[in-house]
C-alpha cells in the first residue's frame, strides 16, 4: 500500500466518482427476502394438507414451539444478516436470532425424547429422513442465493458473521417449511440429518458468500 500520497489517492477516487444509487435499507431488504419466504410457504400450503399439519403440530407443545422457534429464527436471522451488512450498524445485531435459535434447537431436541407418537404420523425412517435433507437443501440453496444477491447491494464489514446469519436464516426457513411435508415423528437420526443439512447450508454460505459480496468488503 501507500503507493500514492493521500492527496493523489483522494484525487484518483474523486476522478473515479460516479453517482450511485443508495443501498436499500436493511429493514426493506429483510422484508423483501422474508416476503419471498412467505410466498413460498403460501404456495406450499396450497399443495399440502394444512389441516393435518396443524393437527399434528398442536398435539404436542414441543412441536409447535420448535416451529415457532424456527420461524422466529428465520425472521430474526434475516434481519440480523442485513443489519450487519451495512457499515456502522451495531455488531450486536448478530445476537438477535440467538434466543429463537435456542428455542428451535431446544424443542427440536425435546421432540426426540417424547414417547408420544403424534396423530397422523409414524416414526421417520432413514429414507424419509433423506427426503427431508433433500427438501432442506433444495429450498435453502435458492433462498441463500437470493440473500447473497441482495447482500451484494450492501458492504458487510464482517462478511463471516453476515454469511453465518444469512445461512441460518435460509436453513431455518427451509426447516420451517419442511413441516408442510413432515407427517412422521421426529427421531434422533432424523433430527441429526436435519442438523447436518442445516450445518451444510450455513457452512456453504460462509464459504461462498465472502467471495460473492462486494469486492473489498471482506479481508
Amino acid at each position: 500500500m501507500a503507493e500514492w500520497s493521500e492527496e493523489q489517492l483522494i484525487d484518483r477516487l474523486a476522478a473515479d466518482l460516479k453517482p450511485v444509487r443508495k443501498s436499500p435499507s436493511a429493514s426493506l431488504m429483510a422484508g423483501l427476502w422474508l416476503a419471498v419466504v412467505v410466498a413460498i410457504s403460501l404456495f406450499l400450503a396450497l399443495v399440502s394438507d394444512v389441516g393435518s399439519m396443524l393437527h399434528r403440530l398442536t398435539a404436542a407443545p414441543d412441536m409447535w414451539l420448535a416451529v415457532l422457534g424456527s420461524s422466529l429464527t428465520t425472521i430474526l436471522a434475516a434481519i440480523a444478516a442485513f443489519q450487519t451488512s451495512i457499515p456502522g450498524r451495531n455488531p450486536y445485531w448478530g445476537l438477535l436470532p440467538l434466543p429463537a435459535l435456542a428455542i428451535w434447537i431446544g424443542f427440536s431436541g425435546l421432540g426426540c425424547l417424547r414417547d408420544l407418537i403424534l396423530p397422523d404420523s409414524e416414526p421417520a425412517t432413514i429414507r424419509l429422513s433423506m427426503d427431508c435433507v433433500f427438501f432442506i437443501l433444495g429450498l435453502s440453496v435458492p433462498l441463500s442465493a437470493l440473500m447473497i444477491i441482495m447482500l451484494r447491494r450492501t458492504f458487510p464489514l464482517r462478511p463471516n458473521l453476515t454469511a453465518l446469519l444469512g445461512g441460518i436464516a435460509a436453513a431455518a426457513a427451509a426447516a420451517t417449511l419442511l413441516n408442510f411435508f413432515h407427517p412422521f415423528n421426529v427421531t434422533a437420526s432424523d433430527l441429526l440429518l436435519h442438523a447436518l443439512a442445516i450445518g451444510l447450508i450455513v457452512g456453504c454460505n460462509r464459504l461462498l458468500a465472502k467471495s460473492a459480496y462486494a469486492p473489498g468488503s471482506g479481508r
Binding site: 477516487l13 443508495k22 443501498s23 451495512i86 456502522g88 450492501t154 462486494a214 473489498g216
Partner: peptide, 23 residues
C-alpha cells in the same frame, strides 16, 4: 497509520452507496 488511512479511503469509495444520509 498511512496504510490504514488509504485502505479506509478506498473502502469508503467502494461502500459509499451504503451510507444513509438520514443517519
Amino acid at each position: 497509520i498511512d496504510d490504514v488511512v488509504q485502505e479506509t479511503l478506498i473502502t469508503i469509495h467502494r461502500a459509499r452507496a451504503t451510507y444513509d444520509p438520514a443517519r
